[in-house]
C-alpha cells in the first residue's frame, strides 16, 4: 500500500449490521460490513441504490431512523467505541469529531436562521470560544469554501444562496469544529456537472488542509475516481470489493465490479454495446442465499449459491468472491 498505516486507523467498522424490523420479517439492510479509514484518507463507498451505502454512513454517525437499528458489529473512532453511546454523547461526537455533508443542502440548513447564526451556534457548541471569535471563524470558513464577500453573505438566509453555494455552506458547517472525519453522502448528486466539479475540488482541498479523513458515499464512479484513495464497492448490504481506487477501477476483481465498470459509458471509448449486468439488485426481502450477486453473476458456480463468501485478501485489497478463495485469482 502506498501509505503505510502509521498508527491505528481513525475509524474502524467491524461486522456492522443494520436491521429494519417489519411485519413480514426483519430486513437486513447492512450485513456484516467491515472496513477502516486511516487519518486523512478518503474512502469512497460506491454502490447502486439500495446497496446500503448511505445506511452505513448513517449508522456510523448514529443517525439510523427508527425502527431501523444497529443489530450487530462495532464502530470504533480513534480507539473509542461509538456505536453503543447514548444519544447525548453521540450528539457531541457528531459535529465535534465527525462532520456530515448530505445530498440535499436544503435539508441540512435551517431555512429560518441566517447561515451565520447556524455556523456560530455550531462553533460555540463544540469549541470553547466567545461569540465574536466564533463569528470570525465562521467568516474564515466561508472564505475557505469559496464564498465571496463572506462578511456580507454571512447574514443571508439559505434561500438566498444557489444550490452550489448552499452545498459550500454545508461543507463549512461540517468543518466548523475541525472534525477528524467527514461523512459525505452524495454531496454532488443534486448539483449540475460544472458545480459538481467545483465541489469535488473544494472537498479534496479542504480535507487535505484540515487533515480530515472522508467517507465519500456516492453512486458515481467518476466522483470516486477523482477523489478517493481507496474504494469500497457495496452490493445488497455487503462489501463486494475494497481496495485502492486505481486497482478497483482499472483492474476490478469482483464480477459485480467488473460489470459495473463495463456498464459506465465513457467519452472516447467507442463501443457498439455497453457491458450490462442483467437483472436488478435483489430487494431486501429477497436476498438470495450464498453470494447475493450469484443470480446475476456470469461466473457463478455451486459454491456461490450455497455459501456466502467472506472478504478474501488479494494483492492490495479484499474481495468477497469464491473465485478468489485459497489464493486463486479469479479462476474457477
Amino acid at each position: 500500500m502506498t501509505s503505510p498505516r502509521a498508527n491505528r486507523p481513525l475509524l474502524e467498522v467491524d461486522g456492522l449490521r443494520v436491521e429494519f424490523p417489519t411485519r413480514r420479517g426483519t430486513l437486513v439492510a447492512v450485513d456484516g460490513v467491515s472496513f477502516h479509514i486511516d487519518p486523512g484518507e478518503v474512502l469512497g463507498v460506491v454502490g447502486e441504490s439500495g446497496a446500503g451505502k448511505s445506511l452505513t454512513g448513517a449508522a456510523i454517525i448514529g443517525l439510523i431512523e427508527p425502527p431501523g437499528r444497529i443489530a450487530g458489529g462495532r464502530v470504533t473512532l480513534d480507539g473509542r467505541r461509538i456505536d453503543d453511546l447514548p444519544y447525548e454523547e453521540m450528539r457531541r461526537i457528531r459535529g465535534r469529531q465527525i462532520g456530515a455533508v448530505f445530498q440535499d443542502p436544503l435539508t441540512s440548513l435551517n431555512p429560518l436562521y441566517t447561515i451565520g447564526r447556524q455556523l456560530v451556534e455550531t462553533i460555540c457548541t463544540h469549541l470553547d470560544v466567545t461569540p465574536q471569535q466564533a463569528r470570525a471563524r465562521a467568516i474564515t470558513l466561508l472564505q475557505e469554501v469559496g464564498i465571496t464577500a463572506a462578511e456580507r453573505r454571512i447574514d443571508h438566509y439559505p434561500h438566498q444562496f444557489s444550490g452550489g453555494m448552499r452545498q459550500r455552506v454545508v461543507i463549512a458547517l461540517a468543518l466548523c469544529a475541525n472534525p477528524r472525519l467527514i461523512i459525505a453522502d452524495e454531496p454532488t448528486t443534486a448539483l449540475d456537472v460544472s458545480i459538481q466539479a467545483q465541489i469535488i475540488a473544494l472537498l479534496k482541498k479542504l480535507c487535505r488542509e484540515h487533515g480530515a479523513a472522508v467517507m465519500l458515499v456516492t453512486h458515481d464512479m467518476g466522483v470516486i475516481a477523482e477523489t478517493a484513495d481507496r474504494v469500497a464497492v457495496m452490493y445488497a448490504g455487503r462489501i463486494a470489493e475494497i481496495g485502492p481506487v486505481r486497482d478497483v477501477i482499472k483492474r476490478p476483481k469482483h464480477p459485480y465490479t467488473i460489470g459495473l465498470m463495463g456498464s459506465i459509458p465513457t467519452i472516447g471509448r467507442n463501443v457498439e454495446r455497453l457491458t450490462q449486468i442483467d437483472g436488478a439488485m435483489p430487494r431486501l426481502d429477497a436476498i438470495p442465499p450464498g453470494c447475493a450477486f450469484n443470480p446475476r453473476c456470469p461466473k457463478a458456480f455451486d459454491r456461490c449459491r450455497g455459501e456466502r463468501p467472506e472478504a478474501m485478501a488479494i494483492e492490495h485489497g479484499q474481495v468477497a468472491c469464491w473465485l478468489y478463495a485459497n489464493g486463486r485469482m479469479g479462476e474457477r
Binding site: I195, A197, Q198, I200, A201, G222, A225, I249, K250, T266
Partner: peptide
C-alpha cells in the same frame, strides 16, 4: 466530467454558476 480513466489530467474547474 470526472475522469474515470484516471489519466491524471489536470482539470480546471470553471468558476461561477
Amino acid at each position: 466530467i470526472p475522469d474515470l480513466e484516471m489519466s491524471g489530467r489536470a482539470r480546471i474547474p470553471v468558476a461561477g454558476e
